[in-house]
Simulated scan of single mutants.
Amino acid sequence: MRSAGCLSAIPSATGGIARLACARVAESGKDPAALLSKAGLTLNDFSDPAVRLEVSTQIMLLELAAIELEDDILGFRLARGFDLRQIGLVYYVLASSENVADALRAAERYSRIMNEGVRLRFNMEGHTATIALEYVGVDRMGDRQQIEFWIVTLVRICRQVTDGRLVPSRLQVRHLRAGMPPEFRMFFGRDVEFGADRDVISFPVPVALLPLVGRDGYLHDLLRRYADEALVRKAPHGATLRSKVEKTLTTLLPHGRGVAKEVARQLGLSTRTLSRKLGEEKTSFAEILDQLRAALAKRYLEEEQLPVSEVSWLLGYRELSSLTHAFKRWTGMTPRQFRSRRSQPS
């Protein structure tokens, strides 16, 4: 066991990939608890999405799950099936970029929010744009499932944000496989070079310069500021349930899913347990949601070029009138009056 004092030097990850794998194990009718035990984890700790995992532990869990499920390309399948929006803030930074190259540069900068053990390097030289994946403080040669998940996910992101089936000009990975899985060729549109000296996805430069369908310069700059804060922010020891609810709500609100049932599900709790535990902290879900929306609304409205309609969307309101009514309750002003008042010279 490593001492707690050494933990800050050990690369960690959000554990999202490992949680997807354990969910797949549970769906197959098998108990993931035994799998977690082999990795030194308990089901109780693992069910908390706020708990980060050592990257080496995630790699071990993925390989164990692949064996348990008798699925040699589990990482590939998991990456094909999950909703890219589950990535959270980093995905929205990428999706609001100007073009593919800008999105991949953002991935290079912010990917360590998700996984400190995988460093991305984007480069454009000559006729080729490349995104290389380098392992930091983690044994690369012991991994197949995680790296394949990353490569599939990066290609999926490039396709989704351009609304096109982009085909890499070259795909190289360091680990070996006995043969080319037909699913790989079908998905990527070309063969993967196994046993290479590096892990790299290559595209022609014109592909890297393709504009993104959801590009939004102002929103992108706003989200980058939040991502920059996330890079340096350290999660407090023993974070309260309230802070976990606030963090979860921030990602759910833009999709209109900021409800107690969904937050409880993502935190691995029943709705009743969530309500009881928040009561122990002398608060409630409705109070947290209302106070968070009020704080975020003021913060977003300080960004003068962000349309009020977009502020409404970011806060999970379907109608602008709903934001207007709520904001008048919080401040006695409409959102536009608040923004106008702040812009007046003192």
Rank of each mutant, 00 (worst) to 15 (best):
E193H: 13
G214Q: 10
R85K: 12
G164E: 08
Y135T: 08
G258N: 02
L231T: 10
L64E: 11
I67G: 05
H220E: 06
A33H: 03
D71I: 01
Y135M: 10
I151E: 13
S322Q: 12
E229T: 14
R198A: 14
A129T: 09
L323G: 01
Y317E: 04
I73E: 09
L269K: 04
I151P: 04
R85I: 00
Q160G: 04
A23D: 14
V167W: 06
V232Q: 12
I288A: 01
V200L: 13
P49Q: 02
I201Y: 09
G189E: 07
W330H: 02
A235T: 12
D72P: 06
G189C: 03
L249K: 05
R341S: 08
W150M: 12
I17L: 07
T153K: 06
L219Q: 10
A132M: 07
Q160E: 13
Q337F: 00
L241K: 08
R24S: 09
V263F: 07
I201Q: 09
N123W: 02
L249S: 05
A26R: 09
S243W: 10
L292G: 01
L241G: 03
L69I: 00
A239G: 11
T248M: 06
S275N: 07
R190I: 08
D31S: 10
E54S: 10
L69N: 00
E262M: 08
A79Y: 03
E319M: 10
R336V: 10
K244Y: 09
E287Q: 14
L306M: 04
R185H: 14
V205H: 09
D45T: 06
D290R: 06
R112E: 14
L7R: 15
S270E: 12
W330M: 00
M114K: 14
E281Q: 07
L231S: 09
T273F: 02
L166M: 08
P49S: 05
L209T: 08
V259W: 10
F82H: 00
V90P: 03
L209K: 13
L166V: 13
P204H: 10
F203R: 02
G316Q: 04
M60A: 13
L320M: 04
R159Y: 02
R198T: 11
E304P: 03
E280Y: 10
D71P: 00
P182W: 15
D163E: 15
R272Y: 06
L301A: 02
D199I: 08
A208R: 05
V118E: 11
